[in-house]
Design a protein around this nucleic acid. Sequence first.
DNA 1: GCATTTCGCTGCTTCAAGCAGCTACTGCTT
DNA 2: AAGCAGTAGCTGCTTGAAGCAGCGAAATGC
Lengths: 164, 164
Amino acid sequence: MATTRADLVAALVEAMPQYISAAVRYQIAVADQLGMPVTDIHAIGALLEIGPAGVRRLADVIGMTTGAVTRLVDRLERAGFVRREPDPADRRRVVVQVVPERVADVSRYYEPMGDRWQQQVATYTDSQLEFLVEFLRQGRGSAQAETTALRTNGRPHATRRRGA
Amino acid sequence: MATTRADLVAALVEAMPQYISAAVRYQIAVADQLGMPVTDIHAIGALLEIGPAGVRRLADVIGMTTGAVTRLVDRLERAGFVRREPDPADRRRVVVQVVPERVADVSRYYEPMGDRWQQQVATYTDSQLEFLVEFLRQGRGSAQAETTALRTNGRPHATRRRGA
DNA sequence: GCATTTCGCTGCTTCAAGCAGCTACTGCTT
DNA sequence: AAGCAGTAGCTGCTTGAAGCAGCGAAATGC
């Protein structure tokens, strides 16, 4: 097969969303096993990513309303995954923090995947690893930017609809 | 900074889930814009991936019950994203097919992201592209395998819980 | 010191998903 | 050929997550 550059790009364009879909399905399966909504897992991930945060902040990050997040945190707190701490500097605020020991119980489910992953990565050269990291970071940046763009502008950036 | 291999792997282990989270949030934002549940988008993706399929098959792929999928397909059909075709070979079955023209309306939302992505990819060498494709395919395979493992075995593969 | 804004919480409503049971149909067995 | 177990998809019913709008409390601007 003559793998031209166009073929390669096409293959990548196909492989990418499929990869993400597979990851999402995996995450859903984990959530099912844990008997908790995917959103909750998602929220824990967000907290691990941004650190302790108020309800508002968390709501913005995961794209939900504060009301919904309040109850989401209720669930997580009841299950022991997070703690609510009052903010001494602002007595309205509540800072949500993950409870690492408990979160480990979730992480455990990702271990088999992580193992496979380590194996895969072990065969790569250092420069390949660097390349991957850079690729992912940049992609993440794009996704973040487009997410906020979508949330603020609404529709995709003035997609030229035939002659505009 | 002395980027040892361990550092690189650590960076990758951090970058990966964050990348996926970002992608997921993006997808949620798209779904919100379209005013449809994320699951529905997800299902469309699955159909594009596996081609026309019966309700059962689709249910298995996206990890839902047939009952839920029936109604999911109801929604998609009403909105014109898919069509139900009777299977002449088996009159119990219903084959669900995407309606490409209509699905394009969803794809449009991914365009800005796709554009950024094309830009990013344009700077890569052919071998880097090959590497990426391979990386993604393998990762997808792992995710699929672990997903089914999780769904059949339940819990992660007999995680040695301290002395078992 | 008062008005405005922000923060998180709480009814209420909506709607997606699971569950269980149903009918229609297949194909296997005898 | 007839019966029968298994399969495919659909339909009530129930549960529960999320949005919305409105609330009191606290901070901030003037």
